[in-house]
Design a protein around this nucleic acid. Structure first.
Length: 191
DNA sequence: CGTTGGATTGGCT
DNA sequence: GCCAATCCAACGC
């Protein structure tokens, strides 16, 4: 049982801390798909762009639960995006996983992604979900448990982290709550 | 109950 | 660069 108490911090701090950590997905076939987190965005209840802004609803219930669980939402009628719940229980904070760097299982990810390869495998939130075969069924999953686990890695030094405004939102657009690893080819929209 | 628009993506102009 | 695809949560009546 992994210890996710280090995620009991502000969503911005957690978004920084999650860079470099890994998501390990074991398929029914036994194959391991591993992605290193290279781009994140922070959301919390004070934030008009956050799903948790208007309080706890059936959809956002998981966001208000304990840190280290997965919040998966469906959007634009066809895409799933996944977040790691952070902060303290009842807080409504989460970190959107916007991009991964494939570490293992890239060939299977390519199949999951309809034959795309290279940076197109995982350079976007819905692409990363599709590559790891994550959908609604994974909403609420405890990331300390197989077959989908979050592996905490060493915190990255500030000088390799770029901080910018978030993508695709129409409210609270000024907040600098997007973080990514400098020069990483899997970042969805480099500066 | 009807309307609206979204933490996106990929194909086409 | 623009925009359609396609579902559903949230909100107004």
């Amino acid at each position: 049982m992994a210890d996710f108490t280090l995620l009991n911090v502000s969503s911005e701090e957690a978004a920084r801390r999650l860079l470099g950590c890994e998501l390990v997905r074991v398929l029914d076939t036994g194959e391991r798909l591993v992605g290193r987190i290279v781009e994140t965005e922070a959301y919390n209840q004070t934030d008009a762009a956050s799903h948790s802004y208007k309080g706890r609803t059936p959809r956002t219930d998981v966001m208000f639960g304990p840190a280290g669980h997965l919040y998966v939402y469906f959007t634009y009628g066809m895409h799933y995006c996944c977040n790691v719940v952070v902060g303290h229980e009842g807080e409504g904070a989460a970190v959107l996983i916007r991009a991964l760097e494939p570490i293992a299982g890239a060939q299977t990810m390519a199949v999951n992604r309809g034959g795309r390869t290279g940076y197109e495998l995982t350079n976007g939130p819905a692409k990363a979900c599709q590559a790891l075969l994550l959908d609604r069924a994974w909403n609420g999953h405890d990331l300390s448990q197989p077959p989908l686990q979050l592996k905490i890695r060493k915190a990255l030094p500030d000088e390799v982290i770029v901080q910018t405004t978030r993508i695709g939102i129409t409210k609270d657009t000024h907040r600098l709550w997007r973080f990514y690893i400098k020069d990483n080819p899997y970042v969805s929209r480099p500066a």
